[in-house]
Write a protein that binds this DNA or RNA. Structure first.
Lengths: 355, 355
DNA sequence: CTGAAAGCGCTTACAG
DNA sequence: CTGAAAGCGCTTACAG
């Protein structure tokens, strides 16, 4: 017999209602309450209604641990996080974690974040799994020679990946953002704004992500009938080096004429280098030279930089779909959005790139 | 009788070992295995060792749901997240979520992120609690008239807060960053760099956080014997308005003389406005006018802006301490760090604020 | 120091 | 359509 809510002294913690309390209140067995919850079709309408009323009245919520134990299923999935300091992809992964949590279908799954020892990542995956708190995983930040996918496949553990699993092409349960399509979109936008000589500032060749974005630039030019031999330069992800590379790039572009020059970049930081280079030659970003970055970081927002934005929330929803819905076929490649700001609209009243 | 690991066909998912498997392998009862795990002092040394060896050999990890159910304790705490788009504090809270996960003491607690319906936040707290998946909560982003603290207190639910609970001064289980101390530190740093006339650009009076930071500026000036009536201006968190306010502020500061002028700001965005204003009058941030921002965002890193950094990882560790260690007295006020960059060092070779 | 008993809250297959 | 039985994997108080 449970303590009745009404009988509590004020300030005392209410005892939670269990399925047995609901059963007693509704005058049925606890199995029938369980059926109301899990197999409502097997319960007669009047019984259903009566039980449901008591569930609502008592504020009953099933005890998740008991369900997990009995069902031998956690209905939860793990997501590895690493200390913010070591981030390799800006805040995208922090955002993805948040959006995965928001998008969790409350009935079918929730998210468990865990932080492995960096020297022995797989142990954390194994422990998380065998302690019964997850049924599978959402991977992100997959690398070439990533040990996780082969291990998970061997163990027959369900997983999806945010980001292609580059060296396992037979794997199809992943969702990624089509960086090339995003850059192509940027090129089309610049052309529409009246820029016709569009250069590229990217990372050194050899990174899957960077090469993909550069391909988008070349394809965009080709589709539009623009000069496919437009200048391109490379820089690592460092502001000073980017500025230097951008100075050379901007000089080459401007040497062929003025007024219709723009640069598309593989990242916002590279784009910031371009804005600097443009200022250095006495011109104004967005008015004299168009600039587009990638990832729509805080920097882009602050400096009025047009930028390609990854649809992180949609990627999170898709990840849940690939995990839970066997009908949904992978892989899924999402188109990014373009956030248009002053750096690409040729409006003399709204120069970009302050201060 | 369980399937033996050795007997599995290759590729088949291993059945996890349970406490019963360990007991059988070690030739003891399952209660003894449980004692090895939870009350090792009650077990004879040889038994302890024998059982431990089998635990390691079988890779046994206790089933968390079974423990939670039996102990009637989740050893987990909830943390509310909201879609990234609606963020009010930059990426600080995303970072805090990550650091809370990293800092979770694996034996004593783990973190459960959940996303409430914005129109009915308390319902999500109640459900998370009564479903038995958490024992309490970590709050963040507490507001004046926040409904959560009074409700949690009334329900006798344990919680800590990242950020003061401003309108419940009797509450002491919180950890916060001492913004005033951070700004004071910035003032001292600027003075050491040779700036002696130091203005303030803050938010309109009335916000707890903003007023606190401004107090730090005034105290810093007083401690150093500098002009406590130095000019101050206000702006909301918007780049154009910040630039306008900064222009007025910089003009006033420069009117009294040049060469030793600096501005401390309540945010990096306001600081960006100052850098713009400095450029507009033909001067160079960091060389002619010192600038310090707050929060050390990506913008600060990209623009070589010196900025006050909140110690998020330490705040997360402290939050766990306040939650789990009754000896640890609250409240805890952490000192921020100053990330020094070109905008405050008066070095002509490293101007800040590109492009 | 070790083990037999009870039970946490639920679900599932099955009998009536 | 409804309920009695069994059991998921563990821990706790207690008897020996």
């Amino acid at each position: 017999m449970r303590v009745q809510t009404d009988g509590l002294r004020s300030g005392e913690r209410e005892a939670r209602a269990t399925i047995v309390d609901v059963a007693a209140a509704a005058g049925v067995s606890r199995q029938t309450v369980s059926n109301v919850l899990n197999r409502p079709d097997r319960v007669a309408a009047p019984t259903l209604e009566r039980v449901q009323r008591e569930i609502d009245r008592l504020g009953f919520t099933p005890h998740v641990s008991a369900q997990q134990l009995r069902r031998q299923r956690a209905s939860a999935f793990g997501f590895e996080v690493n200390p913010s300091g070591h981030r390799r992809m800006g805040h995208i992964l922090d955002e993805f974690l948040v959006e995965l949590t928001v998008a969790a279908p409350s009935d079918a799954g929730h998210l468990v974040a865990f932080a492995p020892d960096p020297d022995d990542v797989l142990t954390a995956y194994r422990k998380t799994l065998t302690s019964g708190i997850v049924d599978g995983f959402v991977l992100a930040d997959t690398r070439t020679d990533d040990p996780r996918p082969p291990w998970l496949i061997e163990q027959r553990v369900p997983f999806v990946s945010f980001g292609r699993v580059w060296d396992q092409p037979e794997l199809t349960r992943w969702v990624d953002v089509d960086g090339g399509a995003g850059v192509r979109q940027a090129v089309h936008h610049l052309a529409t704004s009246g820029y016709s000589r569009i250069g590229w500032l990217g990372w050194p060749a050899g990174s899957n992500v960077g090469d993909d974005r550069r391909r988008g630039w070349a394809e965009g030019l080709r589709e539009l009938g623009l000069d496919v031999d437009a200048p391109a330069e490379e820089s690592v992800q460092d502001l000073d080096q980017a500025t230097e590379a951008a100075e050379s790039l901007v000089t080459r572009l401007l040497a062929q004429g003025r007024g219709d020059v723009a640069v598309v970049c593989a990242s916002d930081l590279l784009a910031l280098g371009v804005m600097r280079a443009v200022r250095h030659v006495g011109l104004v970003p967005g008015v004299d030279v168009g600039v587009v970055g990638f990832d729509d970081t805080e920097v882009a927002a602050a400096l009025q930089l047009t930028s390609v934005r990854q649809p992180v929330a949609e990627a999170a929803r898709t990840a849940w779909g690939l995990l839970l819905d066997p009908e949904l076929e992978g892989p899924v490649l999402l188109d990014p959005d373009l956030t248009v700001r002053a750096s690409s609209v040729r409006d003399p009243t709204t120069a970009a790139g302050g201060p």
